[in-house]
Design a protein around this nucleic acid. Structure first.
Lengths: 267, 267
DNA sequence: CAGTGGTCTAGACCACGCT
DNA sequence: GCGTGGTCTAGACCACTGC
């Protein structure tokens, strides 16, 4: 709509017909410049963050964006290419470019790397054990980039594959975003919680970071997962991020790996 | 050198001046076509596989390749872009494009995801426990895509961080490629084994696939890692692939995660 | 058929590394 | 100063989708 283009670093001062000319710093002026397509990428990300285009929706065509930002289609293309490779956006030939959403078969298992040793991957059943509001302990606050004592929602659940309890999850969510999250709403929701987070709380996760360790089941855990005390489990600590790399979920999962394994591709 | 271009699918028959025209299948002829840049990518990969350019070496410039393949620089660029994002090749502005190698700081930890809970990551010390030739068991043969009973090299080692045994590795390597691998050569080699594999056996790994489980240390393992029986460990089973997605290494690692964790980025 | 993303080309200029 | 990869443009044609 408005001239978003005015924010660009396009220092196309003197030289020649058309062409790049982005990164030439005028003597003695502002410090850093970045390629045009990076700036476009940032602008698009900001529009996503501000909710101008919501998950699942169609964003303007490359030509439209090129016009809006006053750059060539190729430059917009390169920006979108990167967003696409980061799974922020999905391109569909002949249709357009869509904001990535967790409400899709493609995304069902994006963050769930536990796959069965045999048979096909299917989504587990959910059982909510506990939901409560609490004040963030120092460690949780640090990881979520909020203040100690700030309100957080704590959540515990067990996930089962074909009736076999396999995952015990504990989550901490910033109260500022997730207030109003109840066991009821969680129980009536099917599929990945990230779908609910997106629809009900307007928070879409774009990436996550995990730390994995091996631990043994204590009494409490053993009971919930219906295994013996001492059984080895995968301890997966995850921090999930939304647009702008803001952490918005802390999750600790305990995975039973007697019939499943954590799959990872190194490249 | 020779007209490698003759192998291209360029079906630039009739229409107009220049331009795409790759994926139009002439009525009733060969089945599948792929974009030009994909074909270029395949040709480059074949040259890598054949050893025309070795790890660490400079490959021809984009202009040269464009001339060789009779396509535009942009098309070569897109092919190289993908190879670069797959870590097959490394671009250096002002210098050229180089074949990726494990002999670099950048690549030291590419496949080793175990990082210390505190402090900086440093490369562990190696102790070779055992090296022997054997006949491939059915399971090993299947995973390495060779025949049961084929010769394989089996290798066991312990890796320590600051003197603390942390990783017990068992490896199976195809004898056809790795014959001549001895404990001696392994012991006198510093840094990741992949560096040695590359220099001494001409085999460069481009990607790997891992399956992770939690297990408990048995008596044998406990002794080697200097821990108690029953201590929980990460069991990491890895298959590594070289050019053309050929599996060339099977590795089972047991990771002690009391002072380290396995780090993974989900995106 | 029109509109979208996907491929390809040709040519310009830039930042970088070397000599 | 020259050669390299990196950015940007303009314009062509293609394949796919849906009206």
């Amino acid at each position: 709509m408005n001239s978003t283009a005015s924010t660009l670093n396009t220092q196309n001062t003197s030289t020649s017909t058309q062409g790049a000319g982005v990164a030439n710093s005028p003597p003695g002026t502002s410090p850093t410049f970045s390629p045009l397509y990076q700036q476009i990428k940032t602008l698009i990300t900001q529009s996503l963050q501000s909710g101008e285009w919501k998950p699942g929706e169609l964003i303007p065509s490359e030509m439209e964006l090129a016009a809006r930002f006053k750059v060539s289609q190729g430059t917009v293309r390169k920006a979108i290419d990167e967003l696409s490779s980061e799974n922020v956006v999905v391109r569909r030939q002949g249709k357009g470019t869509f904001v990535a959403t967790h409400h899709e078969a493609r995304s069902q298992f994006r963050f769930l790397r536990l796959v069965p040793d045999e048979g096909v991957q299917r989504y587990p059943e959910n059982k909510i054990i506990e939901v409560k509001k609490m004040r963030a302990p120092a460690e949780v606050a640090r990881l979520l980039d909020i203040k100690t004592g700030d309100s957080v929602v704590f959540l515990r659940r067990v996930q089962s594959f074909s009736g076999v309890p396999t995952i015990l999850d504990e989550l901490w969510l910033p109260g500022a975003i997730f207030k109003g999250l109840t066991a009821e709403r969680l129980n009536e929701y099917k599929g990945p919680m990230y779908g609910l987070f997106e629809s009900e709380f307007g928070t879409h996760m774009i990436r996550a970071s995990e730390e994995i360790r091996a631990v043994c089941a204590d009494e409490f855990v053993a009971q919930l997962l219906n295994v013996s005390v001492g059984v080895p489990l995968l301890n997966v600590e995850r921090i999930s991020f939304t647009y702008g790399d803001r952490p918005v979920e802390l999750r600790r999962g305990l995975y039973l790996t007697s019939a499943h394994h954590y799959r990872n591709e190194l490249s």
